[in-house]
Simulated scan of single mutants.
Amino acid sequence: MSWLGLEGRTAVVTGAGGGIGQAVSAALAAEGVRVVLLDRDIARAEDLATALGGAAVALRCELTEPEQLAEAAARVEAEGGADILVNSAAILRPGTLDTLAEADWSAMLAVNLTGSLAASQAFGRGMLARGRGSIVHIASIAASQPQPASGAYSASKAALAMLSRQLAYEWGPRGVRSNCVSPGLVMTPMSAAFYADPEVRAKRESMVPLRRIATPEDVADVTLFLASDRASYITGQEMVVDGGLSQSLMGLVPRPGYA
């Protein structure tokens, strides 16, 4: 038995085919968890399920399609229900706010925020009925540090962090915990273009006190802890996984006599 004690549980991961979603799913499966992989790209989810073996099942699910989400939730509930939900699905449509199209703004909110609420409702109802469960939302340090030229991304992640806190307050008395993990700079398929230039990567690394870009596994480790009973008295919290980047603001301010 592992230290986390997650064996035999069922977890649902949205956006399971993405970089962080894949890492979280693999880490859960390694702990003996049955993982339900939700992704709008079913081929990507099925490839991951194959790689994880019998510990995973892939379901096509677009969070903005209520019928697909309801079908996925009904199937999971018929097989015993979810003990853990990880809301990892997210999209990015970059653009400055003076030119951002309303359609792009709405699309990001629909997936990053409303999709997380919809998944929490769909799989949380069973948790509430059983009086136990853990939900972990993947937010971002962009929730508290405005990220320029990223459209609605910062706003959607800030709202997601508050959604997590509100769920914790409303559902805590009924045995369901809600927390969020806020990664900093992470190497994922969605961010890979930012690191194509070695000079850009080196500059980014130099800004992080731990001097490296995070891996999806760094985020997965914290997610599993929050999902487990080792965090049974933690709810409504945001755990920042950024190598200290968000603590570096004052280091950018010139100070006489200090190099």
Rank of each mutant, 00 (worst) to 15 (best):
S206C: 11
A27P: 12
V222R: 02
G244S: 12
G17Y: 05
E217V: 08
G81A: 08
D104V: 01
M187F: 13
R9N: 08
A231F: 01
E102Y: 09
A159P: 06
G133F: 01
V253M: 12
K157Y: 04
S228E: 05
S248F: 06
Q247K: 11
T14Y: 05
R130D: 11
V35M: 14
W105V: 08
G8Q: 01
A27M: 06
L210G: 05
Q121Y: 05
A142G: 07
P94V: 08
A78R: 15
D197G: 08
G53C: 10
Y233T: 03
N87D: 13
R174E: 14
M239L: 13
G257T: 07
S156M: 00
P189E: 05
L245S: 13
S154Y: 03
S182W: 04
M239Y: 11
R255V: 14
V253L: 09
V253Q: 09
S248C: 12
G32A: 05
S116Y: 06
D39C: 12
Q147C: 12
L245F: 12
L100N: 01
A118D: 08
Q68P: 05
V240P: 10
E205G: 04
L97M: 09
E199S: 12
A74K: 11
I20T: 07
G172A: 05
A129D: 10
G32P: 13
G53F: 14
M162S: 08
R125P: 00
G133Q: 03
T215N: 11
T223Y: 01
D218S: 01
A122F: 00
G32H: 02
